[in-house]
Design a protein around this nucleic acid. Structure first.
Lengths: 186, 186
DNA sequence: TCCTTAATTTAACGTTCGTTAGAATTATAG
DNA sequence: CTATAATTCTAACGAACGTTAAATTAAGGA
């Protein structure tokens, strides 16, 4: 009966529900209804609700973050960061929702400490990573640290606008804002 | 028996619970237990769970936003915005939690459309407001619009760090970042 | 004092939740 | 064609939920 792999379809629908209604607001019954399968099928593929949720965050969300982080090809930093953010606009709907859900978990709406710690660790790696990227382009800059921090902060907001608030950010606006922060770099 | 006004105490505890567990993860029973009153007392003061939640967002959260927005005394814009953000650090715990909850609702974790629309309207008023504040200080700036947008984006992230992620942001870091964006202004 | 109103409680209602037992169906392979 | 394994279903479990009825207690003025 199943056109696509059922296990996958369950996960896709689950992402949608967790996103819209939160962990506690999401019910296995509603997921099953949208997937068009019976309720116990979800328990056939996932041990329980929590495991379904965890798989989305631990596998899907972190996969996404790592894929993004590996896109490092730099000549012009402003071009690079502009592309980095602009490409988020064209993420698949599913990826966008996974991203969105990850950010929401990070902001601890449903208070899962274990997942939050995972994310805290990830966040600690962000500043040094961008520092490395920017270092060669900031010879003549004295407040290097602050510039990197400001840039990362700005990136965060733009990511949030695109992914969480589901807005489209035009490339020239992205470029403008990044340029304002990086105007002292080449 | 009640040392403080019971109605108020219920609301305070509710903010905590909604923040930690989300709307659906929060139960009237748990609120009552923490308030140390019986369950129906909550229905004595609030029509139902939704009304309790709505009162927090509509009254407490928007009060907070408006109080913040009315703090406009400007001579040096960098000083002004630094103070604007820095003062968030010393919000009362209750105010911080209300703020946090508001942002989370805005990011639509529990999908209340009515509340989200209210917040969308508020957000539309933000850019013009800061444009007014900054206008007199940007005579010699050509990309005025972009600078205002960048600043507002940067402010958003800093607010989120202090209020949602509950971090302390030191004044000099705030000032550094704002200065980087506003370096073309006086 | 008694009466009225406000504050608070115990106990329960109907519903929905997460989860599972166990039977039925379908696919697979020998 | 048959036996075994992989899927899928119907039906139900106990627990927890939001909410309310109705009884009890506390407070205050006549």
């Amino acid at each position: 009966m199943a056109d696509k792999d059922l296990r996958e379809r369950i996960k896709e629908v689950a992402v949608e529900h967790f996103n819209t209604n939160g962990y506690h607001g999401t019910t296995i019954r509603n997921i099953a209804k949208d997937v068009n399968c019976s309720l116990p099928m979800i328990y056939y593929y996932y041990k329980n609700k929590k495991e379904l949720f965890d798989e989305i965050i631990k596998k899907e969300y972190f996969n996404l973050l790592e894929k993004q982080a590996s896109l490092l090809k730099i000549d012009n930093v402003i071009d690079f960061y502009t592309k980095f953010i602009y490409d988020l606009n064209s993420l698949s709907n599913y990826d966008k929702q996974v991203y969105r859900l990850g950010i929401k978990v990070y902001l601890s709406f449903d208070g899962d400490e274990e997942l939050m710690n995972l994310m805290d660790e990830w966040e600690k790696s962000i500043l040094p990573r961008h520092r490395e990227i920017l270092k060669p382009h900031m010879k003549n800059v004295n407040n290097e640290k602050a510039v990197v921090r400001t840039l990362v902060h700005l990136l965060e907001t733009m990511i949030e606008n695109i992914v969480v608030k589901n807005r489209y950010l035009p490339e020239d606006e992205i470029r403008e804002e990044i340029s304002i922060v990086l105007q002292s770099c080449g």
